[in-house]
Simulated scan of single mutants.
Amino acid sequence: MTMASLNLLPHSAPAVSHCVSSSSSSLVRSFVACKVQFFPTKGNLRTYQRKRFQRRRRRSLVVESALDEVSVVDPPPPPPPPPSFDQIASLKLNLLSAISGLNRGLAANEDDLRKADEAAKELEAVVGPVDLAADLDKLQGRWKLIYSSAFSSRTLGGSRPGPPIRRLLPITLGQVFQRIDIVSKDFDNIVELQLGVPWPLPPLEVTATLAHKFELIGFSKIKITFEKTTVKTSGNLSQLPPLEIPRIPDALRPRSNTGSGEFEVTYLDADARITRGDRGELRVFVIA
């Protein structure tokens, strides 16, 4: 009787709300039928497995799509440690050694120029860029020029037009200074000169002051604008009043001498400064 009931079951498994029988035989048949109906038949099993696979596949595609949209960015490398005081001091000493004995660049040859430039670049690379907005107060004061790569051209103007030294004119270059006032924006180039005069008179010592105004351009660049030149005698003729040389009108000024210039401060501390001019001139200063 049980087998007959199993054979009469349909291929699909209908839902059964309850299974109750008043007799024991009916109870057995109903219990067996209920137990069988809770398991899918062969046809329904394939459908059930296929749908379950499709649901899992859809979930997998969603997860893969989400992972594909996430871009993995490597963290930036840690910044290099700041240079030590000893390292900076060693590089400064190396630069001073490279330019010593060159008479501020007047006696430099091509090999001397290369060594000085390499020593300056090593110091600039280790310390990093200069921020004049934060270190403007370090510019204040009187600075002494101890090296200029442009002086190897043997002219007072360096790479710019200037009178020759000990060629056509009996001029001896003395000390060169820069006087910077960050409040008034004054930027003066001060040059000490000896001018030859007929014998038996002694050489004429003069100090020429080329007055400029300066302004900051960006983080480390400075623009200077020429205003006037003042010449003052020294030595035995120091009692003479200063002489102001008239400024050449802009219409008569050569294109190569516009009265302004730009340079970049590539190294700056309390007692040393390195600059690079708009024509590739390397200059080294120390506080006077």
Rank of each mutant, 00 (worst) to 15 (best):
L93C: 02
K121I: 13
Q37K: 05
P14Y: 07
S25Q: 13
F39A: 08
F151Q: 01
N44S: 09
D111P: 04
S26H: 11
G157L: 03
K221R: 12
P161N: 03
D86L: 14
R154V: 09
K92V: 12
P200A: 08
A98C: 02
P161V: 11
E281P: 02
I217Y: 14
V70L: 08
P198Q: 08
Q178C: 03
R29L: 11
C19S: 11
Y48G: 00
G128T: 11
R52V: 13
S65E: 02
I171E: 02
V16P: 00
P76Q: 03
L106E: 03
I248G: 01
P164G: 09
T41I: 04
L113Y: 13
V62C: 05
M1K: 08
A134E: 06
R50F: 11
V130T: 07
L6K: 12
K144W: 05
D137T: 15
F85C: 10
A4F: 13
R50A: 09
P161H: 09
K121M: 11
T258F: 13
I190M: 01
A116R: 04
L91C: 02
Q49M: 05
T207M: 05
S23C: 12
L168I: 15
F285S: 02
P77R: 05
N44L: 15
Q37C: 03
A208P: 01
R55H: 09
Q178M: 11
V197G: 03
S21A: 15
D117Y: 15
F219G: 00
R167Y: 14
P10F: 07
P164I: 15
L240V: 09
N94E: 14
V16E: 01
E124F: 07
G196K: 05
L102T: 07
V206M: 03
A98L: 05
A66M: 10
A211G: 10
